[in-house]
Design a protein around this nucleic acid. Structure first.
Length: 438
RNA sequence: GGAGGGGUGGCAGAGUGGUUGAUCGCGUCGGUUUCGAAAACCGAUUUGCCCGAAAGGGUAACGGGGGUUCGAAUCCCCCCCCCUCCGCCA
């Protein structure tokens, strides 16, 4: 969520930055208009509330005095608010009730505006960082680095669906398309990948392993930014429980410190978690659906960081390096893309995508998306940090995949295949898989 | 699913209709003292929003929401969470 105060004070900056994301900036004028109305009425409401509070206190004191001596005069505070001295206690009470009703109207009107502002803000994306390249679509993303060489074959490399049994037909029978069913070798490889990822991040990168719920409340998804805007992307249970299946471990991890104020010296807090991820992929029908390129349920190990605003940028680089390290250890060629303003995710200010090359499909596949959210999620989740001088400010949150299993598996299968159709397991993974060959 | 207990400031824990944003303690920070430290003593110590250049002022919040009332942490209703016991189940 954006800061209404910042929008109020810097409408031009906000408009300019959001325009680079393709947002209609009329929304900003709209929210500012409502904000102005809200502040005016809110101010009046608070003034009146203050008067009422004073009068109520005075009234209470008067009632006490009347008990002792029935002729006690009404206190000055009460008289001045009512305009004239009340005839008696009942008279004062009736007049106060009337003022209370009037005050109530103001309060309710203010609440309506407040609600409207809230909704508007919830639908606005984060401001892109100044570092993010300006562009309209994925075609304007910038390759920041490349590592490793795409493998060369003296035969036509097969796609992953021709190298191993993906179980899409079984999964389809059980759940529908987009739900692979691994049996035997790939099931074991999947488990090896998960363990390898977790061990690397916990033992060498300093992340604390977490085990999280896979179903969460609406509020949890609002904290991390998926709701209310991306409701259609979400699997959801029926009204008896009304829970949502998580689309990524980012969701539960971001809410771990919701409503907390963290001491600066405790930052950065680094978490990693393995979870399945559930995505309806509502807007992506028909795109890259072959094999296990795009599925409704997949496994992923996620990295998540909470830190100070000062350390946000540095942590973004560090987190991205942690994800890249996985690819390097698996000897997979990859490139780091910096997403342009038109392609950055809703809550991110800056984002690196890691793409691995897969020889069979001859494509660069996104296996990780490392985002710096600045204070966007922290404002929604109310995660703050406090320095030695007691200065409190919103935390910065970051997260990235480290990594997503299916596409990593695709790259391993397709890049390490031999002419006779076998697949060699990368050295770093062999002890996890338990064999040199698939 | 059933029965009961509970949710108050960083922690612990008072407060059951009126001047209580909230006693006391612990912790933390600053000061006095000390060569330094400990102890002792003194002071400070929740968060959000609005007005204001600032100083400062106002307002809200005692799990969340609604209600009663001139006035609610305190009374009523709904929901959430935690704990104990029972039931069911991997």
């Amino acid at each position: 969520m954006l800061d209404i105060k910042f929008i109020r004070e810097n409408p031009d900056i906000v408009k300019r930055k959001l325009a680079t994301r393709g947002v209609d900036t009329a929304a900003i004028d709209e929210v500012l208009k409502i904000d102005e109305q809200w502040r005016a009425i809110k101010f009046d409401a608070e003034q009146q509330q203050g008067d009422l509070n004073k009068a109520s206190k005075a009234f209470g004191a008067w009632k006490g005095a009347l008990k002792k001596s029935p002729a006690a005069p009404a206190p000055a505070d009460l008289t001045s608010l009512l305009g004239a001295a009340p005839r008696n206690a009942d008279d004062a009470k009736a007049q106060l009730a009337k003022l209370g009703e009037k005050q109530d109207h103001y309060e309710k009107a203010a609440a309506v505006f407040e609600q409207q502002i809230e909704v508007q803000l919830l639908y606005l994306p984060n401001l892109p960082s100044d570092h993010a390249p300006v562009g309209k679509s994925e075609h304007d993303n910038v390759v920041r680095k490349a590592h490793g060489e795409p493998p060369k074959f003296d035969f036509a490399p097969k796609a992953h669906w021709d190298l191993a049994e993906l179980g899409n037909e079984i999964g389809g029978r059980i759940s529908g398309s987009g739900f692979p069913f691994f049996r035997g070798r790939l099931a074991r490889l999947e488990r090896a990948l998960i363990n390898f990822f977790l061990d690397l991040h916990t033992r060498e990168h300093g992340y604390t392993e977490c085990w999280t719920p896979f179903m969460v409340r609406e509020e949890t998804l609002r904290n991390s930014g998926q709701l209310p805007k991306f409701r259609e992307e979400m699997y959801r249970t029926d009204a008896r429980d009304d829970l949502f299946m998580i689309p990524t471990a980012e969701v539960p991890l971001t809410s771990v410190h919701a409503d907390e104020i963290i001491a600066d010296e405790q930052a950065p807090i680094r978490y990693c978690a393995f979870t399945p991820c559930f995505r309806r992929e509502a807007g992506a029908a028909g795109k890259d659906t072959r094999g296990i390129l795009r599925v409704h349920q997949f496994n992923k190990v996620e990295l998540m960081v909470v830190t100070t605003p000062e350390e946000g940028e540095a942590e973004h680089e560090r987190l991205t390096r942690c994800a890249e390290a996985v690819l390097e250890k698996l000897e997979l060629p990859y490139r780091r893309l910096e997403l342009c303003t038109g392609d950055i995710g809703f809550g991110a200010a800056r984002c690196y995508d890691l793409e691995v090359y897969a020889a069979g499909v001859d494509k660069w596949l996104e296996v990780s998306s490392c985002s710096h959210f600045t204070d966007f999620q922290a404002r929604r989740a109310k995660i703050r940090v406090k320095d030695k001088d007691k200065k409190t400010r919103l935390a910065h949150t970051l997260n990235g995949s480290g990594l997503a299993c299916p596409r990593t598996m695709i790259a391993i299968l397709e890049n390490n295949q031999t002419a006779d159709g076998r697949v060699r397991i990368p050295a770093a993974l062999q002890s996890y898989y338990g064999s040199e060959w698939l």
